[in-house]
Amino acid sequence: MLSYWEKQSLLHYDCIILGSGITGLSTAISLKEKAPGKRILVMERGLLPTGASTKNAGFACIGSLTEILDDLQTMPEEDVVALVQLRRKGLQLLRSRIGDERMLYRENGSYELISEAEMPALQQLDAVNALLSGILPGPAFAPAEKALERMGFHRGYVKALVRNNFEGELHTGMMMRTLTDLATERGIEIKTGCHVTGITETEKQVQVHTEAITFTAPQVAVCTNAFAKALLPELDVTPGRGQVLITTPVKGLPFKGIYHFDKGYYYFRELDGRVLFGGGRNLDFSGEATTDIALKHSIQQDLEEKLRTIILPSLQFGIEDRWAGIMAFGPTKQPIIRPHSDRIYLAVRMGGMGIAIGSEAGRQLAGLMLRSA
């Protein structure tokens, strides 16, 4: 039951954005920067962002060497370059919007662990650097054999180390807290606990239905990544669950920074003297293509085993916490940033790179919405 006052003043907006993660908040902030008079509502089905924005590992990635080489097997060179450029632009926008200190951003580069089977990738390092030379201020990748000597990894598995000069790390919680504060400061409304059950487009507006209330706006942006398919089943979006664990503090931990291996399917970092380690969805692609935010015992076991045998072979550790987040993928790693219809817009399928892509995806989507308003 709604009052006259509620119907008059609390249900109608100029733009409604579904999803309060990185992309959703970035879309809202970008809209407000260009059209400060617009009344904007961001709706989030959970009390906190539901997907991966607050559940990731805090990597600011443009792509590891073996990951980019793998992408070149399924995508044209120009598309791979454009995707790396999108990640780079997104990170630059995020940093300029938030400020490095407000999310503890550190661009100290990253390292990729190279196994025996991946050694041929080193022969293509110069070619990949040349491919990316037009969009980066210097060579993306460099051998890092001297650094490998002091990091304590199992040399039976790790045969070489490659440095990525333009990746960084950040504090995910501080990043999202700051984006939320910026949105609030600009007069953007954020409503949490809003489970959207459907959207209906009419000639003049879009109705956004929840279990109790229907909101309306001339334009709606769907920024719910893997969860977008529940509202628009025709989308070519496949969820991908990412599982993570974090150790107790490790005495004598010999490395800092962020690391990848196995084409980016595994990733770890030092965090307050602990090791945060995630990945393993490549062990069961079909089983991990789910929006169920849960843990799978076999993948958690795999992460612990790789910690013991590859990352920390000579050190004792315990597991302090575990969690999972939901990413979104498609036939290629290209995100979907486009109008879906006359009044519904999409910024979804971030390909596991939401931190890097989300800000620029939101800026681009806001531009599309403003041009057609």
Score class of each variant (00 low, 15 high):
S3L: 13
E6F: 09
L10H: 13
L10T: 11
L11H: 05
H12D: 15
H12R: 15
I17R: 00
G24Q: 03
L25M: 12
S26G: 09
A28R: 00
K32L: 00
A35K: 14
G58L: 05
F59S: 03
A60W: 02
E67H: 08
I68D: 02
E78G: 05
E78Q: 14
D79Q: 15
Q85E: 15
K89V: 12
S96C: 09
I98V: 15
R102G: 03
R106Y: 12
A121L: 05
L122D: 03
L125C: 04
L125T: 03
A127R: 14
V128R: 00
N129H: 05
S133R: 14
P137T: 10
F141R: 00
F141G: 01
A144P: 06
L170M: 13
L170I: 09
H171W: 14
M174K: 15
T178Y: 09
D181Q: 15
L182F: 02
L182H: 06
R186H: 04
T192H: 08
T192V: 14
G193Y: 06
C194Q: 15
I199Y: 02
I199T: 06
T202R: 13
Q207T: 08
T214S: 14
F215H: 06
T216L: 06
T216D: 12
V222C: 10
T224W: 02
N225D: 15
A226P: 04
P233T: 11
L235T: 09
T238C: 11
P239F: 07
Q243W: 00
P249A: 09
K256G: 14
Y259I: 03
D262Q: 13
Y266M: 06
E270T: 04
F277R: 01
G278H: 01
G280W: 00
S286W: 11
A289D: 11
A289P: 04
T291A: 08
H297K: 14
Q300S: 09
L303E: 00
K306L: 10
F317V: 04
I319H: 00
E320F: 04
E320L: 10
M327R: 02
P331A: 14
P335F: 02
I337F: 05
P339E: 11
Y345E: 04
G351N: 05
G352I: 01
M353Q: 13
M353R: 11
I355W: 01
Q364A: 10
L365K: 00
L365C: 06
L370A: 10
A373R: 12
